[in-house]
Amino acid sequence: MANVVITGSTKGIGRGLAAEFARLGHNVMIAGRSQQAIDEAVAEIGSQPGTVSGRPCEVSEKDQVQALWDAAVTEFGSVDIWINNAGLARTVWPILETPDEEIQAMVTTNMFGTIFGSKVAISGMKKQGHGKLFNMLGGGSDGEFFPGIGIYGTTKRGLNYFTDALIKENKDSPLVIGKIRPGMVITEAVVREAKADLNNFNKNRKTMNNLCDTVETVSPYLVDQILKTEKSGTKIRWLTGAKIAKRMMLSRFVSQPDKFEAFGL
């Protein structure tokens, strides 16, 4: 069984991954900004074959990221899989209207958090002689543009380059370094952004229903692929171009159930 650390895992896709790893019997160290959030996530995941523990961690502070690694090693003995999942998306403003404090928050969480997490994890994995590191990408990472994601997409595009650089710099090591693109997943953050710009969301509601999936749908696939990945440079992608095309074609003939009603939208 693997020992897994997931940053930003008290909610959303991070918590979904943690729950799935634990269900399969793997040990998981979750991380979030507060002890209360960690306690609530552990309680919600509940009793599983795998052990679920947690530690507060501000990922933009490298000493806290190092403390997270040390806590996982102390509890589990090693870290076999590290997932840099912590991220922040604010998607309701064009670039010039995005508040400066929101820009700073996205850059520090998404960029600094992933960079520091990667440095700490790779350094520790080289010492122990093995390990897998995955960086969570998202909208904009492949260069595509969507309204409102100018800043968020910039951070993810940068992290795509950063991860490619890590792969090349560590090609002669035993480590596996990869990317995860989870697709369009309905998380607390997505619901928050939709409610903040409800008129625009409702204009795109049909398309969103065709393309979005729940955490519970996506997490098992991602975990299965993470566990199977043995080649550095692998990109794990849920919502492929072929899947998008098939869904959009089927939507012309079959009405999709409204996936957002259950989230108060």
Rank of each mutant, 00 (worst) to 15 (best):
M1A: 13
M1H: 12
A2H: 14
N3I: 07
V5L: 11
T7A: 06
G8H: 00
S9T: 08
T10A: 11
T10G: 11
L17G: 07
A22D: 10
N27H: 15
N27S: 15
V28Y: 10
V28K: 10
I30S: 14
A31L: 03
A31R: 05
G32D: 05
Q36M: 15
Q36V: 14
A41C: 04
A41K: 02
A43W: 06
E44F: 13
I45H: 09
I45K: 06
S47F: 12
G54H: 13
R55S: 15
R55Q: 15
C57M: 05
E61H: 14
K62W: 12
A67C: 07
W69F: 04
D70A: 07
A71Q: 08
T74W: 07
E75N: 11
F76W: 07
G77A: 08
S78G: 08
V79R: 09
D80E: 06
D80I: 02
W82V: 02
A86P: 02
G87A: 04
R90F: 09
R90Q: 12
T91D: 09
W93Y: 13
W93G: 09
E97Y: 06
E97W: 04
P99Y: 10
P99N: 13
E101Y: 14
E102I: 14
Q104E: 15
A105F: 01
M106S: 04
M106Y: 03
V107D: 04
T108H: 15
T109W: 04
T109R: 04
M111G: 02
G113H: 01
G117P: 03
K119I: 06
A121F: 03
M125D: 03
K127R: 13
H130N: 12
L137C: 07
G139V: 15
D142L: 14
E144V: 07
F145M: 12
G150H: 00
Y152N: 11
Y152F: 15
G153S: 08
T154R: 07
K156P: 02
G158F: 09
N160K: 11
L166S: 00
E169S: 06
K171M: 07
D172M: 07
S173G: 03
S173K: 02
P174H: 03
P174F: 00
R181A: 09
G183F: 06
G183P: 01
M184Y: 04
M184L: 12
V185D: 01
I186K: 08
V190P: 01
V190M: 07
V190L: 11
E193K: 03
A194R: 10
K195Y: 12
D197W: 10
D197H: 12
D197G: 09
D197T: 12
L198H: 04
F201G: 01
F201K: 01
K203I: 04
N204V: 11
R205W: 11
K206V: 05
T207Y: 11
T207P: 03
N209S: 01
L211R: 05
C212N: 06
C212D: 03
D213Y: 08
D213A: 14
T214S: 04
T214Q: 03
V215L: 06
V215G: 00
L222T: 01
V223E: 02
L227F: 01
T229V: 05
K231I: 05
S232D: 00
T234Y: 00
K235D: 00
K235Q: 10
R237P: 06
T240I: 11
A242M: 14
K243F: 08
K246T: 13
Q256M: 14
P257V: 10
D258I: 00
D258N: 03
F260N: 03
F260H: 07
A262K: 13
F263Q: 02
G264I: 11
L265Y: 02
